[in-house]
């Protein structure tokens, strides 16, 4: 078989396969770029509309770059509704919940991954089981409980509800499992107790997982809509998502202002995403593949 191929055949084969490759690559790029455009156009439209005059937002033919930039739109939104207060509330909630989540779930995950105790498997099953139960199933009992505690319409209610989610424990445990036990045994022989092992070995090693959990929790709290919708009724505790919806309902015809407010609500997440993209993707891979 090999003898029958002469040099020319091989050359021809190479040329045709490289043409095929170029064609294939072009096709892949074309499809991916067209898709990217669909992904990104709504955001560009938002950006463009936010700088336009009200009457120009829907004008046809459509222009991407407004004739004059209406920077004033970005001033107006802060005055129409207490957007600054809402932003502050959202930052406060996101930071506190993320901090508590990191602390308690990495602590608990250490016990689940590396310590032996009676009832470990059963308890872990409870944690996993509740991940699969839709939150809406128990939102009413949670609401009633919070009302009994007099915590409705306070930030504490959402903090208590969202700081101890089983998801965090699950994610951290998956990561801890990949740290070899021999390392911990060696530390135990050296006389370190479990707390020292946790703080001196596990915590420094688990930075990537902690980073993943941080951004997941932060983005979740930042974007959460249903939780604040149920618990927060007065303006002084509302979050940015509720504010945005309030804005949409009250000024439903102020299209450019709505777009400006939407854009402002997206910016923190965008910055976080661009800076820590790697950890988002690693976090998903950790829970997805090993789970």
């Amino acid at each position: 078989m090999m003898k029958m191929l002469n040099l020319n055949d091989i050359k021809n084969y190479r040329i045709s396969s490289s043409w095929k490759n170029v064609f294939k690559k072009t096709l892949i790029y074309a499809v991916l770029s067209a898709g990217s455009l669909i992904m990104i156009l709504p955001f560009l439209w938002m950006l463009s509309a936010s700088f336009k005059l009200e009457k120009d937002v829907f004008r046809y033919p459509f222009t991407w770059i407004p004739e004059t930039f209406q920077w004033i739109n970005y001033m107006k939104i802060w005055k129409k509704i207490p957007f600054l207060l809402f932003s502050f509330n959202t930052i406060k909630l996101s930071v506190i919940i993320t901090f508590l989540q990191l602390l308690t779930s990495s602590f608990a995950a250490y016990a689940f991954a590396k310590l032996k105790f009676r009832g470990r498997n059963f308890l872990f099953l409870c944690y996993i089981g509740t991940i699969a139960i839709p939150w809406q199933v128990y939102m009413v009992p949670q609401y009633i409980m919070m009302r009994h505690l007099g915590l409705n319409d306070t930030h504490l209610s959402l903090i208590l509800l969202q700081a101890f989610t089983p998801f965090g424990v699950f994610l951290m445990r998956q990561f801890y499992l990949s740290i070899p036990n021999e390392l911990l045994d060696a530390a135990r022989i050296d006389g370190l107790n479990e707390y020292q092992i946790y703080f001196k070995i596990m915590l420094p090693l688990s930075k990537p997982a902690l980073a993943s959990l941080t951004i997941f929790t932060f983005v979740f709290v930042w974007n959460d809509f249903m939780g604040p919708l149920i618990y927060f009724t007065s303006d002084k505790v509302k979050t940015i998502q509720l504010g945005l919806r309030m804005f949409i309902q009250q000024y439903s015809a102020d299209y450019s202002l709505i777009m400006a407010a939407s854009l402002v609500s997206l910016i923190p997440v965008l910055i976080l995403f661009l800076a820590l993209q790697r950890f988002f993707i690693e976090g998903i891979a950790t829970t997805g593949v090993k789970g």
Partner: peptide, 11 residues
């Protein structure tokens, strides 16, 4: 990761 409220209103 984009906020649902913002995404829904722009669509």
């Amino acid at each position: 990761v984009a906020s649902l409220v913002a995404v829904a209103v722009v669509w």
